[in-house]
């Protein structure tokens, strides 16, 4: 062991004053900060690109893009109200079907499932999110739609006599708002159930035990103590699923029928904003047409942005409570 010279730091300091490690730290921090900045830059770039490209259409047509129904490329009329209507209705149908199922699965997985079933069922539900949109569409065209046309739609209309209501009337073509809603329900389900499961698992034991100690049954405990506690997180999960459904493109385009009409019947074909863009964008030749489609994209951007922001806020609120 050699003894250290008295000026041990002195000699080091000379060597290390402009040390590469200090430069290394600076380079490293600069590079990672740069990477982090890419995220906001991408969001801003996307927003700017779409709103700039949509501007001519908004300037010329104003809000008539979302309030009128006449979409006539040659005549220069671009009213996308049916697509907006279809986006909202198909997503609403999807949520009506998916929400009870997703919450049911989440409660099953967090409360009742035998432990050997928990992993595989959870994995299968998660896998629903991994299936590509275009595969859902393919399955929709060749399996779901024939089934709807031949069995489900006649049964709903005539078997259950729901044909008397405007929602289930009219001829059963197959491609329809109902088909889109069903496919979207399957696609939104894993998102809703994943978030719900997480927030349900996060409910403190004390909540459950307090209810059980009062003599509540297991089901009453869940209904009165667990679910209310997790409510805003579950709503956040539903909003996340809604965000997915609103922006979903391929599967919907393949099964909704792509007809720009507003109809009360779920049996009728419809259109969504995303499928309108998907169908027409590559064929749009004149500038106003491109701009109008960009305007539709801008509306979609704003709607999904708001829905997602609210969803994140709700989920964040629950996780913040948990962190305290």
């Amino acid at each position: 062991m050699t003894s250290l010279p008295l000026d041990w730091l002195q000699s080091d300091r000379r060597r290390l004053r402009v040390d590469q490690s200090a430069i290394g730290d600076r380079v490293y921090e600069f590079l990672t900060a740069l990477c982090a900045l890419v995220v906001p830059a991408l969001v801003v770039a996307i927003a700017v690109a779409i709103f700039a490209a949509a501007w001519p259409a908004f300037a010329r047509l104003g809000l008539s893009i979302v309030t009128t129904s006449d979409w006539d490329v040659r005549g220069g009329h671009f009213g996308a109200a049916p697509a907006l209507f279809g986006t909202l209705v198909s997503s609403a149908v999807a949520l009506i079907i998916a929400t009870p199922l997703a919450i049911g699965v989440a409660i099953f997985l967090s409360e009742f499932s035998p432990s050997w079933l928990r992993q595989p069922v959870g994995f299968l539900v998660d896998l629903l999110a991994a299936i590509p949109s275009v595969v859902y569409g393919l399955w929709g065209i060749f399996v779901l739609i024939p089934m709807l046309r031949q069995q489900v739609m006649p049964f709903l209309r005539d078997g259950l006599h729901l044909g008397a209501t405007p929602f289930f009337s009219g001829p059963a073509y197959g491609p329809s708002m109902l088909a889109a809603g069903l496919i979207l329900a399957v696609m939104a389900l894993p998102y809703i159930s994943a978030v719900s499961r997480e927030v349900l698992m996060a409910v403190p034991r004390s909540q459950r035990e307090a209810a059980l100690a009062l003599g509540a049954t297991r089901w009453e405990t869940i209904r009165d103590a667990v679910v209310p506690y997790a409510k805003s997180g579950i709503i956040g999960g539903i909003m996340l699923g809604l965000g997915r459904a609103l922006g979903e493109t391929m599967a919907v385009t393949m099964v909704i029928g792509n007809r720009p009409e507003i109809s009360a019947s779920l049996f009728a074909p419809g259109y969504t904003m995303a499928s309108l863009i998907a169908n027409e964008f590559s064929e749009a030749t004149n500038d106003l047409h491109v701009s109008a489609l960009m305007a539709v994209g801008a509306v979609l951007f704003v709607i999904t942005l708001i829905v997602n922001a609210v969803a994140r806020w709700l989920v964040w609120r629950v996780s913040r409570v948990r962190a305290r």
Binding site: L4, L6, L9, D12, R17, A22
Partner: peptide, 15 residues
């Protein structure tokens, strides 16, 4: 430490 000020001017904490 051993005669060197470790919080001295320009002293590198890594050293």
């Amino acid at each position: 430490i051993l005669g060197s000020a470790i919080y001295g001017d320009g002293t590198n904490p890594i050293a």
